[in-house]
Every structure is written in structure tokens, then in C-alpha cells.
Amino acid sequence: MIKYIGLLFIFVTSVLIGFSLNERLNDKIKILKSIKSLLQQFKIEITYQMPTLTQLFSECTDYNISQLTNNISENLKNGLTSEKSIINGIECSSCVSVLSKEEKYFITDVLSKLGTSDTDGQISLLENAVERIDYYIENAIEDKRKNSKVYMTASIYIGLVIIIVLL
């Protein structure tokens, strides 16, 4: 009896692993889209209201990246420099853990350049960044399309193989 429960547990765990890998692909697309939307919001605010960097991050309302923006705005309010606030904010936010090293580096670089030039420079920076994020989103969608079924199917088969071997 215990043996069958154990085998069921192994099978369920294997399926859950496949499911979670699949979810990571979905989450990555969500986070990238949220970051794109954030940068577009920054562009509008910098053009029309010129808020401070702290205000820019405090007023973000996207739930998907709220941990990131809250961390950064808290760091800025606590007196850290903008670069340290952003690096620390990204490192301490679990929501960006689904991004690749290159994507994280790019986002850190863009956010660190906020507030370092005049309005035209900032708008140019944000427009270029949005284009690049679009490229990352396309890659992530393609990734999901290729790998989503593979993860789910593989997890079920691996679970079944383990059960058969152990039986």
C-alpha cells in the first residue's frame, strides 16, 4: 500500500515539475510585458509630468512587478543611490527570477540610466528599450510554443517510466 502511495507521489511530483516549468514560460512572458508597460508608462510621465525617480517607481500599479518597483522605491527613499537601489531591487525581487541573465542585465542597465540625462535622452532610451523588450517577448513566446508541450509530455512520461521501473 505504502509502495503505491509512494509511486503515486513520484508521478504527481514529476507532473508538477513539468507544470511548473511550463508556468515559468508563461510567467516570463507576463513579466516582460509588465516591464514593457512600465517603461511606456515612464515615457509618458517623464514627457508630461517630470516626476522624480522615486515617484516614478512608487506610482507603478502593475501587480506582476510590484515587488520590483516597491523594492526600488523603498531603496531610493532610504537614501541609496539610484544605481544601487536598482541593482539591489532587482536582486531582491523574486518576480524577475524567471528572466535570463542577459534580460536581467539589460533591464538593470536601462533602469540605471533613468534620470541621468535630459527629457529627450530619456525618451530615446525608453523607446529603444521597449523595442528590445519586444524582441525578448517574441523569443519568450516562441520558447513557450516550442517547449510547453514538451515539458508537460516529458514530465508525464518520465513519471510513468519511474513508476514502471520501480514496479
Partner: peptide
């Protein structure tokens, strides 16, 4: 200087 501009040079340009 960056801190005095609240890390928002565009605001004070």
C-alpha cells in the same frame, strides 16, 4: 549632484 537632482536630471535640465 545626482542626489540633489533626486536622480532625475530631466526634471531639472
Amino acid at each position: 549632484f545626482a542626489g540633489l537632482c533626486e536622480y532625475s536630471i530631466y526634471k531639472h535640465q
